[in-house]
Design a protein around this nucleic acid. Structure first.
Length: 589
RNA sequence: GCCUCGGUAGCUCAGCUGGAUAGAGCAACGGUUUUCUAAACCGUGGGUCACAGGUUCGAAUCCUGUCCGGGGUACCA
């Protein structure tokens, strides 16, 4: 539609002798209650025309109508010039889409981007919050790839620390040698159980100590279990063979469990980093920062950065005893990632509770003069809340990822069977369809919301399969596929322009043409939600088309072919768009 | 306290580089199937866009303040 802006600029120059740069000319889609498809807002031009908005619109409209072939008529309402574009114009757009191979994918832009997401702790199973993270990270990766980037999907696994030792200790004390094999439990679930058990026993000890006269704080510090866990962490850091062996065993259980969940979600990684390998990194960067005068040392030897000039606080970057804090190793890891891949951009998909951390991290790297620091971006997303508030692992209020997925698939199965839609499906096809629909509903539900907004999930209200949902879009796709196969559609065939375009046909073409631009915008904004909403609008439009006009029943062969092409392109864009969300679309449902 | 992100229909969300009478879905009510898949389509009802100022020809959108909610806030990650 950009040619309208150019033509408007030319017209303004001719009519009023002013040269405006393109972004001061405001065009938009015409609202559906008015005639036309494109609207130029003429209010801003009245200061040059010295005429009323209406008259300015008339003048401009007449000029454009006379000089631009694609414009077939216009009307003016207040300061809005509504332009109708000719059938020829719309048809040529469609014809280009039919012929053009590069319409659906952007060319490579030669840039490399890393997307870090998932980043789980290995002491408990994944829950709904992680699911949002994983889906976002995966989808954004797809989006960036579609926009022409080379993408490296990375996972930074938090596989060490006091929380891991808690699970290990509880297993050692109370586990009686239980293994995933012996219990039939998924490895991450098993380890998670011991994490919860630790907390339970620990709380008992605290109560005991309080009864003996300790304060709450003293009790928490001196409970035997906590002391033991801390001792275990020391042994781990010292490389104690037994502790390391146990750690390796239990982490292996967890990884086997995570792999199943990742597989179900359809997410994957090109590179996995482990904190056990990276937690000592960053200390050399601290040295460098002291030398460069970016950091300073306090009397107790702790190292700090003063960010008060940036409106932030002073921030500790290394403890007095020389041990790392979170940001120390993140500095080191950022450097490691860059050294490994030399990427132009690096995206961290991490919840918004870490906004401050990343602000500081990026700022420090800039102050240290890392030129690549400008390419760092924290994709911050809101928490998933339950009606009762936050999910808490220890209080058992988390929505488990595997359980949720299983529920969704089950619901999909029930719904589909009720509707009697799987006649002639093999058992394997049925299972695959239920999986597709169940996951489609879940993924769409989580991705259609803008990342930075918090998300409310009510476990008592099942996720919908009707209306603005994944299954609705999937259904539309299947519906189109059915029409195409009944019409024996051949994508390599040619299209002829119909005598007259229906409004809804024009609307679909206008919607389809937005797709390439949408990819760029969604990639730039890291927003799968834009894709989700677009794909929905397109599907909705198609369903209107489907009800308003006949496709297979029209006598005229050329018109039938035209509508089949329109259907085919719609199905293709739906499938591509859903693919960017990590959602599969069925041929039949 | 300070920083930060949110507040749009009963509920869940779009719209926010300023533009027409603020849009969807769910829920409620009514209609559409001898015709290409009714997980669909069409229609009705439902709004002080948290509140108050300001900028502007024009504000849900930008600015300031207030209220409410989430998150963060110097040795957790």
């Amino acid at each position: 539609m950009n040619f309208i802006i150019d033509e408007t600029a030319k017209a303004l120059k001719e009519l009023y002798g002013v040269e405006l740069d393109a972004n001061t000319i405001n065009i938009q889609e015409t609202r559906k209650e008015f005639d036309g498809q494109v609207t130029v807002v003429t209010f801003p031009f009245t200061r040059f025309s010295k005429k009323s908005p209406e008259q300015t619109g008339e003048d401009l409209g007449n000029f454009l109508l006379a000089h631009v072939d694609a414009i077939s008529s216009f009307n003016v309402i207040k300061g809005f010039l509504n332009l109708s574009l000719s059938d020829d114009y719309w048809f040529s757009i469609l014809d280009n889409m039919v012929k053009g191979k590069d319409y659906f994918t952007s060319p490579k832009n030669g840039q490399k981007v890393m997307v870090e997401y998932s980043s789980p702790n290995t002491n408990k199973p994944l829950h709904l919050g992680h699911v949002r993270n994983n889906l976002l990270g995966f989808s954004v990766s797809q989006l960036l790839e579609a926009a022409g980037y080379d993408v490296i999907k990375a996972n930074l696994v938090n596989d060490r620390g006091i929380h891991i030792c808690k699970s290990m200790l509880a297993w050692q004390k109370y586990g009686n040698g239980e293994t995933p094999d012996s219990s039939g439990l998924k490895g991450d679930k098993l380890v998670g159980n011991y994490y919860v058990l630790f907390d339970k026993e620990y709380k008992k000890e605290i109560e005991q100590l309080k009864a003996e006269g300790y304060t709450e704080e003293e009790a928490k510090k001196n409970a035997p279990l906590m002391l033991e866990a801390q001792e275990m962490l020391r042994q781990w850091e010292a490389g104690d063979e037994k502790v390391i062996a146990l750690w390796k065993t239990m982490n292996a259980w967890v990884y086997a469990g995570f792999d199943l969940t990742y597989k179900q979600l359809g997410v994957s990684f090109d590179k996995t980093y482990y904190e056990s390998d990276t937690y000592l990194l960053g200390k050399d960067i601290i040295e460098e920062g002291i030398e460069k005068g970016v950091f300073f040392k306090k009397e107790d030897n702790s190292v700090w950065i003063d960010l008060t000039d940036e409106g932030l606080d002073q921030k500790l970057v290394l403890r007095g005893d020389g041990t790392s804090v979170y940001i120390t190793q993140d500095l080191g890891t950022a450097q490691l990632k860059y050294d490994d891949f030399k990427m132009d951009k690096s995206i961290y998909v991490v919840g918004n509770e870490q906004d401050y951390h990343f602000k500081v991290l990026f700022l420090i790297l800039k102050k240290l003069g890392r030129p690549w620091a400008d390419g760092l971006y924290h994709l911050s997303y809101g928490m998933v809340d339950l009606p009762s508030g936050k999910m808490k692992s220890r209080e058992g209020t988390v929505v488990d990822a595997d359980d949720l997925i299983a529920d969704m698939i089950q619901t999909a199965k029930e719904r589909t069977e009720e509707l009697g839609k799987v006649e002639g499906f093999s058992d394997e096809e049925k299972e695959n369809l239920y999986r597709m629909i169940g996951l489609g509903a879940l993924k769409y539900f989580l991705l259609k919301v803008e990342p930075k907004k918090r998300l409310l999930f009510d476990p008592n209200e099942s996720i919908d399969f009707q209306g603005h949902t994944g299954p609705f879009v999937q259904y539309t796709h299947a519906r189109i596929k059915s029409v195409l196969s009944k019409g024996q559609f051949n994508a390599s065939g040619t299209v002829e322009k119909p005598k007259e375009l229906q409004g809804v046909e024009r609307d679909i073409i206008q919607e389809l043409i937005k797709y390439p631009e949408l990819i760029r915008t969604a990639a730039k904004d890291y927003s799968p939600a834009l894709i989700a909403n677009y794909v929905y609008d397109l599907a909705k439009l198609y369903n209107r088309f489907y009800h308003e006009v006949s496709i297979l029943k029209v006598e005229e062969e050329s018109l039938k072919q035209f509508r089949l092409h329109l259907s085919y392109l719609t199905a293709t864009v739906i499938a591509k768009g859903m693919g960017l969300l990590g959602i599969e679309v069925p041929e039949r449902m």
